[in-house]
Simulated assay, not measured.
Amino acid sequence: MDVLSDTMAALRTGRPYSAFAERRGRWRTDIGPYAGAGFHIVLRGTCRLIPREGGGPVELAAGDAVFLPHGTAHALAGESPAPTVLLCGAFRLDRSRAHPMLGDFPEVIHLPARPGRNSALNATITLFGDELQAPGPGTDAALPALLELLLVYLMRAWYEERTARRTTTGWCGALADPAVGAALRALHAEPSKPWTVAGLAARAGLSRAAFARRFTALVGRPPLTYLTWWRLTLAARILRESDAPLAAVAQRIGYTSQFAFAHAFKRAYGISAGRYRQERHDDHEHLGAWEMTTITAGPAAL
């Protein structure tokens, strides 16, 4: 099981949004905090990203991508007679039970264009820009698929750069660690299985005590605590994306009864599973303030 893909799928909620923008001369746009992750890609020209709190300006050139995994408030600004062409967008994330992987991300991730680096990301950016600048038959189907690919490649680029620098803490370390990575893949592949610490330790090839210490140190919570957390996170995704009966949801994630699942879900989320499903369906009918100002307004906003 690809744990990174599994995690991203569970975090994502609602529709992604994107817009193509062109500005020239002296300009600035302030963008408020957003309950998701945003990105900006410079297709042509230059500009700078200015975080609202902490950190200095980030100078952006053609081909650069900047990813804001926490929806941090920021500004974009430029000053040039030549046009600056931007691709901007956002992914909605379920922040009610944020994955510990998000804690590894800085507020701003700058991925500068470099020959021979991040080739898949660069190819996706090119395709995305082409579709937005010259829509054709099938564009409405292509854009959502390209947005999903873009999120994958933004996160993969960050992950690969951390791995190349031999970063061994947090989730980069957990996924790269042979023992803990094997246990995580097993949990994600079969979340409904009645796992025990001893069973996971056997998968990892460690003693029970050594495995528990290593897993907790890298993942940030004990193995069975993580399993419970992941099961309920997966349940929330199923509730958002389907009309499956609660009994079926409970069985799919490893609960022996609907009552036990309902109790665990309400304890974790503060509301019943049925109410959670209804509220998330209602949420999808509305755009957030960030989307309204940055996406719907399109080029005029930037």
Results as ranks from 00 to 15, higher is better:
Phe105Gly: 00
Pro69Ser: 01
Ala212Trp: 00
Ala37Lys: 01
Leu43Asp: 06
Arg166Thr: 00
Ala90Met: 10
Asp140Pro: 00
Ala9Ile: 06
Arg117Cys: 07
Glu279Gln: 12
Leu218Val: 10
Arg92Ile: 05
Ala145His: 07
Ile50Tyr: 13
Ala174Arg: 05
Asp140Lys: 10
Gly220Phe: 10
Phe39Ile: 06
His70Val: 08
Glu285Thr: 09
Leu60Asp: 01
Ala82Pro: 03
Val42His: 02
Pro245Ser: 15
Gly254Asp: 13
Ile50Gly: 08
Gly136Thr: 11
Ala186Glu: 09
Pro178Asn: 07
Ala10Thr: 14
Ala235Asp: 13
Phe105Ile: 00
Pro51Thr: 14
Thr228Cys: 09
Thr293Ile: 08
Arg156Val: 14
Ala134Pro: 03
Phe215Tyr: 14
Phe265Thr: 15
Tyr226Ser: 14
Lys193Thr: 14
Gly45Lys: 01
Ala202Met: 10
Gly54Ser: 08
Ala201Ile: 10
Gln251Val: 11
Trp158Phe: 04
Gly170Asn: 00
Arg237Glu: 08
His74Asn: 00
Gly55Gln: 05
Ala236Ile: 05
Thr216Ala: 11
Tyr269Trp: 15
Arg26Trp: 13
Thr256Val: 12
Arg114Ala: 13
Glu190Thr: 12
Leu132Cys: 02
Val180Cys: 09
Pro245Asn: 15
Asp140Met: 11
Pro194Phe: 10
Glu79Gln: 11
Gly205Trp: 08
Ala19Glu: 03
Ala264Pro: 12
Ile253Lys: 00
Ser257Met: 07
Leu150Ser: 09
Thr225Gln: 14
Gln251Trp: 12
Arg280Asn: 04
Gly136Val: 13
Tyr159Trp: 13
Pro222Lys: 14
Arg237Gly: 06
Phe261Asn: 13
Arg24Trp: 10
Phe261Gln: 14
Arg165Ala: 11
Gly45Asn: 04
Glu160Trp: 01
Ala300Val: 15
Arg203Trp: 03
Arg165Tyr: 04
Pro81Ser: 13
Ala174Ile: 01
Ala183Trp: 04
Ser242Trp: 12
Ala268Phe: 12
Thr163Asp: 14
Ala174Pro: 02
Arg162Ala: 12
Thr167Ser: 02
Thr163Tyr: 12
Glu22Cys: 05
Arg275Thr: 03
Thr256Pro: 02
Ala289Gly: 03
Gly103His: 13
Asp6Met: 07
His74Gly: 02
Arg231Leu: 12
Ala35Asn: 07
Thr256Tyr: 06
Cys88Asp: 06
Thr168Met: 05
Glu107Gln: 12
Ala142Trp: 09
Glu160Lys: 01
Thr168Gln: 05
Arg166Val: 03
Ser207Tyr: 03
Leu302Lys: 00
Arg97Met: 13
Gly138Thr: 12
Arg221Gly: 08
Gly78Thr: 11
Tyr276Gly: 05
Ala19Cys: 02
Ala204Gly: 14
Phe211Asn: 05
Trp230Arg: 04
Leu68Gln: 07
His188Arg: 09
Thr163Ile: 05
Ala157Trp: 02
Gly138Ile: 10
Ala262Phe: 07
Gly25Phe: 13
Pro194Glu: 11
Ala247Asn: 05
Ala90Glu: 12
Pro81Met: 11
Trp195Met: 07
Thr72Lys: 04
Leu4Tyr: 09
Leu302Trp: 07
Ala37Phe: 01
Leu200Ile: 06
Thr168His: 04
Ala264Ser: 15
Ala21Lys: 07
Met292Leu: 15
Arg221Lys: 15
Pro69Phe: 03
Pro194Arg: 11
Trp171Pro: 01
Ala164Tyr: 01
Asp30Phe: 00
Lys193Ile: 13
Ala262Ser: 15
Val180Arg: 02
Ala35Leu: 14
Gly38Val: 14
Trp158Glu: 02
